[in-house]
């Protein structure tokens, strides 16, 4: 069971460019996010796939906003605030009332391993909105599991261009999530 100090250490190394540490961090955080989101969705009688969409939206926010964490400070309060704000936001946009405070991520008890077996509805639909070559790059790296270099070779692009496009794609996805429900209202 990883402690908060482990999380901080992984994130500190991740900010310095250590992909392996970032991998550990994200895989340690995700089960807790999932447990939190599922409990919320259970209360509303919403399907687990909706909880998984919330998890993905929160992960995206943690990723895009990690520059606001000061590595000299503990990670718990930072992570909890990001998760709380984003989760409330995400649930509200899905028409779920949030009247109970969202729990502390770090203090949240370890979740039993819950596989992510359900099909995403939102993510698929939002991915389809990405333009080329962003969509190809996202598919190549996420679904097909290729690295940036392999993707660059496959699409006959430079690695730099792939990196830039990938970063833009992630920002676009976050913006799609943000605007998605507003347009429906």
């Amino acid at each position: 069971m990883a402690s908060e100090a482990d999380w901080a250490d992984w994130m500190r190394r991740a900010v310095g460019g250590d992909a392996e540490a970032y991998h550990r961090f994200l895989h340690a955080v995700t089960p807790r996010l999932r447990a939190m989101a599922r409990r919320r969705c259970d209360q509303f009688g919403a399907p687990p796939s909706e909880a998984e969409d919330v998890v993905q939206e929160v992960l995206l926010a943690i990723h895009l906003k990690r520059g606001t964490w000061d590595p000299a400070r503990p990670i718990g309060p930072w992570l909890s605030t990001i998760v709380r704000n984003k989760m409330i936001d995400s649930l509200r946009r899905r028409g779920r009332r949030v009247d109970i405070p969202i729990d502390d991520v770090v203090e949240w008890l370890p979740a039993e391993a819950q596989a992510d077996g359900s099909e995403r509805v939102d993510a698929e639909r939002l991915l389809a909105r990405l333009k080329d070559p962003q969509r190809d790059i996202v598919r190549s790296i996420s679904v097909e599991g290729a690295g940036v270099r392999e993707t660059a070779e496959r699409l006959k692009m430079s690695e730099g261009a792939v990196r830039v496009a990938l970063h833009r794609a992630l920002k676009s996805l976050a913006a799609f999530y943000r605007r998605d429900r507003h347009e429906d209202e």
Binding site: G17, T30, G67, D70, S142, V143, R163
Partner: peptide, 22 residues
């Protein structure tokens, strides 16, 4: 897209740029 696929995307994205303070 499964969550693990998303995590792979996040890992491949370049390290965070300049800090907010800077």
């Amino acid at each position: 897209m499964k969550t693990n696929d998303l995590i792979r995307l996040l890992e491949e994205d370049a390290p965070a740029g300049m800090s907010l303070g800077r």
